[in-house]
Structure formats: structure tokens, C-alpha cells
Design a protein around this nucleic acid. Structure first.
Lengths: 142, 142
DNA sequence: AATTATTGGTTGCATGCGCAACCAATGTGG
DNA sequence: CCACATTGGTTGCGCATGCAACCAATAATT
């Protein structure tokens, strides 16, 4: 089954398009949603932590965070103890975007799972998780 | 389960990295493998056909095809009847790359499915297919 | 036959991403 | 205390991708 790769690609690329469309009114793109959500869930998280969480390159993380800050959705505070670390927090302006993103992710999730039985949904969720973990295990942190 | 998106992203991005590494000696990147393989499977296919097959933008397709041609892995022939269509064929130089790509896709597939039982593998394959089709159905051709 | 629409393809532009080189702050081993 | 390593972050570069505007060839309409 050499098509797996193709379906993953479709899910990913179409997801990006969906996110871009949804987030367009808020001036952010598909590349920022993950980070904004994580900062909200874990206030004070560092960029390093964000990169780890999402298995992203730290350069990618840096740029996403930069854009979110420029738009005023988050703020950075340099850690008192360790001056290398910048701690990230969602601002008041960013707060309402969180639920937009959550709804968006749920909508996309539901669109993908359309026609799935409850068992199939659970199965898909758990298999996807294992597939993602295997991918990470194979390529690993850099 | 808002994490689905994350695992899809990991599978996709790590897959790209894996493909880039594997294909590096042949001077192509992750973006060309799909197209080269399809041209081999369907000699004479047009760019339009390729874009449809993979649900890619035609601009993306154009650039991938251009690169493959520049490297001498494929040739274009303008259709006799309809001068808009360019028909694509894998060259002798491109031929050996095909099996490299096939092996690579199989390897990645196996890496992702590591630890899966036969039933789980089948389940994963069929669910992934349906997820991809749902993604396409939701966003659709442009 | 002339005008208009569609189709296949190309290209400029912007975004997301990984890699690598770099920098400053902190840690560590002599 | 000083040289060196590590850590968190930034930036330049290149690639893959989608979108939109464009063009030429063909098809459709009037």
C-alpha cells in the first residue's frame, strides 16, 4: 500500500488550506494555530518547549512566535532566573482566537471522520497517534 | 481529540525529511517523488492528469515536472492532436530511480506501521484512505 | 466566421518548513 | 577563575506548496 503517503499528504495539505481560510480574518495562517493553542494551554512555555511539543524545528517555532507577537496575540517575558529563556503568554487580544482555533480543529476533525462509526473514530484516533509516534521515532529529534 | 492534526503534521513533515534524505544522492527532493512515480505508472500522462491524481495545484505540478526534466529523468512531448497538452515519459536515466522511490515508500510505510498487527495495518490503510478522501471532499478541487 | 469560454500550462508572489550557522547566557571541568 | 560545552533563540537560505494572473491552443456559442 504505497498510497498511504498520498493520503497523509492530502490530509496535511488540505488541512493547511482549511486552516488558512478559517484564520484569514484574524491575520494568522495555518502555521501559527498550533503554537497559539499550546501557549494558551501552558502559559509561560518557552519556544524550546513549544518546538518539542509539536516536534517542530526551533527556527519554525521562532518565526511563528514572532508573528503572533507582532499581531499582539501573545507577549514574551524574559525569564528572571535564566535570561536565555523567553516565557510566552496569550494576551487579551489573543484570548478570543483560542476558541476559534478549537472550533476549527474540531470542524476539520469531524470533516475527516465523516461517515465513521464510533468504533472507527476511536480506532482512527489511536492508530493515527501510533503512526505519528512511529514517524517521530524513526526521524527523531534534531 | 484535537491531536489528530498534530499527528498528521508529524507524519507528513517527517516523511518529507525521510524522502529528502533518501533522494538526496539523486538530486531530487521529496516534492518530485510522487510525480516521477506516476509518470512511470502512466506514461504519457499530462501535467493536468498528474495534478488531479495527487490533488496538487497545477503550479506545484509544473515546477516538479520542470525539475524532473532538467535532471533528465523525464521528457515532454507535445501532443500531436492537442498542442496544449504535454505528454510525459520517464527516460532511461529516470528508470533506476523508480525502484529507489518504491523501496523508499515501502520503508517509510513499514517504519510507520512498526508494531502493528496485520489487522491493524489493514485497518490503518483503509481508514487513512477514507480520511484522505474526506479531506478532498471537504476542500475539493480548485 | 467571429466572439467568448474553457483547458493545459507557466510564472510571480507569499507562506510554512527544515537546516545550518551564528549569538548570548548559562553550566561545567580543569 | 578561565576555557569550553550546552542551551535557548535568531536569521539566511533553499525547497515545497497554493493562489492568482496570465498566455496560447482549442472548444463552444452566436
Amino acid at each position: 500500500m504505497r498510497e498511504l503517503s498520498k493520503y497523509v499528504s492530502m490530509m496535511y495539505r488540505y488541512g493547511q488550506i482549511f486552516y488558512d481560510e478559517t484564520l484569514h480574518p484574524y491575520e494568522i495562517g495555518c502555521g501559527q494555530q498550533f503554537f497559539l493553542l499550546r501557549i494558551h494551554e501552558q502559559p509561560g512555555i518557552s519556544q524550546y518547549g513549544l518546538a518539542e511539543k509539536g516536534y517542530f524545528d526551533k527556527g519554525t517555532t521562532a518565526r511563528a512566535v514572532k508573528k503572533l507577537e507582532e499581531l499582539g496575540y501573545i507577549t514574551r517575558k524574559i525569564d528572571e532566573q535564566d535570561h536565555r529563556i523567553t516565557r510566552l503568554y496569550v494576551t487579551e487580544k489573543g484570548e478570543p482566537i483560542i476558541s476559534i482555533i478549537r472550533t476549527m480543529l474540531d470542524d476539520w476533525h469531524n470533516a475527516l471522520m465523516d461517515g465513521f462509526s464510533e468504533e472507527e473514530k476511536e480506532m482512527a484516533n489511536s492508530l493515527l497517534k501510533r503512526l505519528g509516534e512511529n514517524a517521530s521515532k524513526t526521524i527523531g529529534r534534531r
